[in-house]
């Protein structure tokens, strides 16, 4: 059993060495780890899902949110003080986030449409049942 009073000063000292604002950094760490978890879901889905269209579900959604969360987390982690420069940095990173928010679904749709016009038919229910039996 680890005592909280013993751990807290160590953490505080470590944070003092690194610089930055403590509660903001904690939120940033949490967001980064959450993004990593969702990206794990995407990676496993890319391997496990049966056909191209279902893999697209994993990639199109997981990619958007995990990238957004990780970038937002790093925007908070790198914020050292509330000066103009660090605010500008946060706004820049948020510009990337906004850009990805618009473009990720668009490129997903473009690939999807290209595949659909290439006579790449999606799996039907019976094909899937056959595959599950194997």
């Amino acid at each position: 059993m680890i005592h909280v009073q013993a751990v807290l000063p160590v953490v505080a000292e470590a944070v003092d060495k690194g610089g930055g604002i403590f509660p903001l950094q904690l939120i940033g760490f949490a967001l980064g780890v959450l993004g990593l978890v969702f990206f794990l879901g995407t990676a496993v889905g890319m391997i496990r899902f049966p056909d191209f269209y279902t893999r697209m579900h994993a990639a199109g959604k997981g990619d958007t949110l995990s990238t957004m969360l990780m970038l937002a987390g790093f925007a908070l982690v790198t914020m050292e003080d509330f000066s103009l420069g660090s605010w500008l940095l946060v706004v820049k990173i948020m510009a990337i986030v906004l850009f990805l928010y618009i473009t990720c679904p668009t490129s997903t749709h473009a690939l999807m449409r290209a595949a659909f016009e290439d006579d790449e038919m999606p799996l039907e229910e019976k094909d899937l049942a056959k595959r599950k039996k194997k």
Binding site: F39, M46, R55, M56, L111, A114
Partner: peptide, 13 residues
């Protein structure tokens, strides 16, 4: 298309 999708995800990351 699978290959392009994977390249796209890697690029975003």
């Amino acid at each position: 298309f699978d290959r392009m999708l994977a390249v796209n995800v890697i690029g975003t990351k």
